[in-house]
Simulated scan of single mutants.
Amino acid sequence: MDNRTGVSVDVISDVVCPWCFVGQKRLDRALEMVDGVEVDVRWRPYQLDPSIPPGGLERKSYMLAKFGSEDRLRQMHTSLKETGAQEGIAFALDAIEVSPNTLDAHRVLRWAGSAGPGVQDRLARRLFELYFQEGQNIGDASVLIDAAREAGMDTAVVETLLPTDADREAVQEEIATAARMGVRGVPCFLIEGKYAVMGAQDPGVLADAIRQVAELKARGELEAAS
């Protein structure tokens, strides 16, 4: 394969989706399995629940209403913790006090996409860690600004834009576009804007998909195959 072949992977996800955190870890492993392919990972927005108010909701009550009972919620937490442990994630689900609206987090992620190589990826990872491992409210502006700083962003820009409506509609339109494409759950890995791998798949599945698309692209057959 041409070792100059480059492939884009758009990860459509929500930063409060635990399976998206698992998917991020599995994508990392998949990329280690793909030789001779330069992969450009880009994070795209999705909201599991856009109806959550800007200030968020009390987490336990929200989750009980969603899952119906403490027993069912406990089973879900146990399963997630077991899966997370296999991927190096220490889920601290009981530490989460607020279920946030994630629109502002996605706005900052959008700005991170033009802030330099690797910045957006670092920010996405940090937001997952803050929410799922540290129990932080990633709907809070100060938390988002601190995360942006850690990822290498110019926080003066974030501090200026975050209180405004900058890119609010653009993010919502991206989410609507994903829905029109048939995305009904996340994570969704969109390879070269054409081939979708749904769910937190095994790293081998992701690696095979990336490799196959890269081979088609290297042979100039990508358009014909779409």
Score class of each variant (00 low, 15 high):
L216W: 10
V22H: 11
E223Q: 14
Q201E: 05
V39N: 05
L48E: 08
P50F: 12
D121L: 11
R110S: 12
L27C: 02
R184I: 08
A156D: 15
R168F: 00
N101G: 03
W111M: 11
C188A: 14
V186L: 04
F21I: 05
A224F: 00
S61E: 15
E97G: 13
D167Q: 04
F128C: 13
A166Q: 06
A147P: 07
R44I: 06
G118E: 03
R74I: 04
K25V: 00
P187S: 05
T164M: 06
V108H: 01
R122I: 06
G182R: 12
L162A: 08
V143K: 08
D35Y: 05
I52E: 01
A176H: 13
I89S: 04
V108A: 10
D208F: 00
L216A: 13
I210E: 00
K66H: 10
D35F: 10
N137A: 13
A65R: 15
V119M: 03
K217F: 04
R180I: 09
D10W: 07
A196Q: 02
R26F: 12
V7T: 04
V39L: 12
V119N: 08
G139R: 13
R184A: 15
A200L: 01
G135H: 15
L109K: 08
D40H: 08
D94K: 05
E82Y: 07
G185N: 15
P187Q: 09
V11A: 02
S69G: 10
S69C: 07
L222S: 02
V34P: 07
L190P: 00
R126L: 15
P187T: 05
Q24H: 15
G68E: 06
L73Y: 14
V119Y: 03
I138R: 11
R126A: 15
A115C: 07
E173G: 01
D167F: 02
R184E: 11
G84H: 08
D49Y: 05
T155N: 12
V108K: 04
T78I: 13
D94M: 03
V108N: 03
S69N: 06
D94A: 08
F189L: 01
M1P: 14
R110Q: 10
D2V: 01
A179V: 14
L103E: 14
L190A: 05
E129L: 06
L190C: 07
A124Q: 13
D94P: 11
L144N: 10
D121M: 09
E38Q: 12
E192L: 10
D140P: 14
G185H: 10
R125I: 04
A224V: 00
E129D: 14
T102A: 08
M153C: 13
R29S: 05
H106M: 13
L123K: 12
S51V: 01
L93R: 02
W19I: 02
R219M: 12
V108L: 09
G204P: 03
Q201N: 03
T177F: 10
S99N: 10
L64H: 12
A85T: 04
D28E: 15
L222M: 07
Q201C: 03
F189I: 05
P54A: 11
V186N: 00
E32Y: 02
A90F: 08
D154V: 01
